[in-house]
Amino acid sequence: MEFRVDPDTWFVFSILFISGLGLFIVGFIAIPYILRKKQIERLQFKFDRKSDRFEKVEKKISHRRENQLEKNNQKLKSDLKISLRDIVKNNQLEPESLTFFSDFEKIYPDFTSSLQKKIPKITSNEIKLCALLRMNLSAKAVSEVLNITPESVNKARYRLRKKIGLKPRDDLYLFLLNISNSAN
């Protein structure tokens, strides 16, 4: 028995075999590629969701931190005013005034350095005067804290305005307020 294959059948069979083999190779390459692509999309989605959660948590933590710092700042400001009232009432200058100025530095940490940058030849007494003026105290209250007369306070203010270079219409308090705001 001789086995003979018709050339047309052989051609159809070859085409079917090559097509099947081609589909198998394409499937062997395409299916893992599609599965990897879907897996990468899922991982990217999970990463984006986690990063969004992380950002929300970071914002919440920073907001709480800011609130806590604001509360501490308000407490320090009220403590500063109380210590200033105690200094004025008791007329005990040295220990309490040192506490006042250290509290002032806690509330406005860069005030002195900013003031020294703006006015390079400023003295320590003028810095104390500026701190008290920054608190918007009257000449009488400043004189009680520094243990000098109100006229001396006015003269010191005049000299300070002259050293700063402020014009008569310019406000010294606003100048000091801008320094403390630019420092914070």
Rank of each mutant, 00 (worst) to 15 (best):
residue 120 P to I: 06
residue 126 E to K: 02
residue 78 S to G: 00
residue 123 T to Y: 07
residue 182 S to D: 06
residue 6 D to S: 08
residue 96 E to A: 10
residue 59 K to S: 13
residue 103 D to S: 13
residue 75 K to T: 08
residue 132 L to T: 07
residue 105 E to M: 04
residue 121 K to N: 13
residue 183 A to Y: 05
residue 168 P to K: 07
residue 157 R to L: 04
residue 78 S to Q: 10
residue 158 Y to A: 12
residue 13 F to T: 10
residue 25 I to T: 11
residue 15 I to T: 08
residue 179 I to Y: 03
residue 81 K to Y: 07
residue 85 R to K: 15
residue 131 A to S: 14
residue 99 T to Y: 11
residue 98 L to C: 06
residue 127 I to R: 03
residue 111 F to M: 02
residue 57 V to Y: 13
residue 184 N to L: 06
residue 48 D to H: 07
residue 89 K to E: 15
residue 74 Q to S: 12
residue 25 I to K: 10
residue 91 N to E: 15
residue 27 G to Q: 03
residue 71 K to T: 05
residue 180 S to L: 06
residue 41 E to W: 01
residue 29 I to F: 11
residue 7 P to V: 12
residue 46 K to P: 01
residue 47 F to D: 03
residue 74 Q to L: 11
residue 60 K to H: 11
residue 113 S to F: 07
residue 184 N to Q: 04
residue 48 D to Q: 09
residue 83 S to N: 11
residue 164 I to T: 00
residue 149 T to N: 02
residue 147 N to A: 15
residue 5 V to A: 05
residue 157 R to V: 14
residue 103 D to M: 13
residue 48 D to T: 11
residue 26 V to A: 13
residue 34 I to G: 04
residue 64 R to V: 03
residue 130 C to L: 00
residue 51 S to G: 01
residue 79 D to M: 14
residue 7 P to Y: 08
residue 153 V to F: 04
residue 47 F to H: 04
residue 25 I to A: 13
residue 150 P to Y: 03
residue 107 I to N: 04
residue 159 R to L: 11
residue 147 N to L: 07
residue 148 I to M: 11
residue 147 N to R: 14
residue 79 D to L: 15
residue 50 K to N: 06
residue 19 S to W: 09
residue 66 E to A: 12
residue 69 L to E: 15
residue 16 L to C: 12
residue 5 V to W: 11
residue 67 N to A: 06
residue 7 P to L: 06
residue 154 N to C: 01
residue 177 L to V: 00
